[in-house]
């Protein structure tokens, strides 16, 4: 088991080196190399089944990689559960299907992590939760249950829930794919706010408008490989690979 010391602030916050992953015999991710600087916003796109969700799910160990290294904020992900829990507490994740806890109120959804993982006193945790609920424009729903909210509201709550853990990095796994069109904007607006405040973000999405607006880097994945990455301007105007061109022609 290797555990690197705390990274210097100039080190990349996420380092992935020669990482491979298999589902059984199926080689889902092949030779992934990725470095993410603090404050960087990366949009990952690609056809379905290309491994983009799997990649970001490896970063907080919802999926296990079989070869290579993933180092998050100086902690390498191995089978050591202590390291995994440490990384998970520092990395926020927003899911396609929100995954709020339906038996808890919105406020309880938000305070759960701070109270049980960060050991924040309840009062303080509630104050933090209210602050983030206001940030995502939904403070008036604090006493309600997730089932009483619309999809867009639920996703904003899910973002606030992650933020309550004061994450170093936020992962978004197709955060708007399960939403009705009129709700997509309210979620994207919150994400844009977040990006403007300097949050490190990895976003798997098909919202190319969002990518153009906030991404520092757009990454295209296909068949489990990172095919191409570039600044959004270059990526959309001047794609290098045939597969990228084909993909862009299909979605734009």
């Amino acid at each position: 088991m290797t555990q690197n010391g705390r990274a210097k602030s100039t080190d990349p916050i996420i380092q992935i080196r020669e990482m491979h992953k298999w589902y059984g015999d199926f080689h889902v991710l092949s030779n992934i190399n990725l470095e993410v600087e603090k404050g960087e916003r990366i949009v990952i796109c690609g056809p379905s089944g290309s491994g983009k969700s799997t990649l970001i799910r490896c970063i907080n160990r919802l999926e296990e990689h079989q070869r290579g290294q993933i180092i998050v904020n100086g902690v390498e992900l191995t089978n050591d559960i202590k390291n995994i829990e440490k990384v998970r507490a520092e990395v926020g994740m927003v899911f396609q299907h929100f995954n709020l806890f339906p038996h808890l109120t919105i406020l309880e959804n938000l305070t759960l992590g701070p109270i049980w993982v960060l050991k924040t006193p309840k009062k303080e945790a509630e104050a933090i939760a209210m602050k983030y609920l206001e940030k995502v424009h939904i403070a008036e729903q604090a006493k309600k249950y997730p089932g009483q909210l619309s999809g867009g509201q639920q996703q904003r709550v899910a973002i606030a829930r992650s933020l309550c853990m004061h994450p170093e990095v936020m992962l978004f796994d197709e955060p708007t794919s399960a939403l009705d069109p009129e709700m997509i904007k309210e979620v994207l607006d919150v994400m844009i706010d977040l990006a403007e405040e300097g949050m490190t973000m990895l976003v798997v999405t098909h919202e190319m408008g969002f990518a153009e607006k906030v991404a520092d880097r757009v990454m295209f994945m296909d068949f489990g490989e990172i095919v191409e990455q570039n600044s959004p301007g270059q990526f959309f105007a001047n794609p290098q690979h045939e597969r990228t061109k084909l993909f862009l022609s299909q979605i734009l």
Partner: peptide, 20 residues
């Protein structure tokens, strides 16, 4: 998704079971 959400905020096995 409930397990994954619990994992992603860093809850351990006992907490996940008991609270979620």
């Amino acid at each position: 998704g409930q397990y994954e959400a619990a994992d992603s905020i860093g809850l351990n096995y006992n907490q996940t079971m008991r609270l979620i």
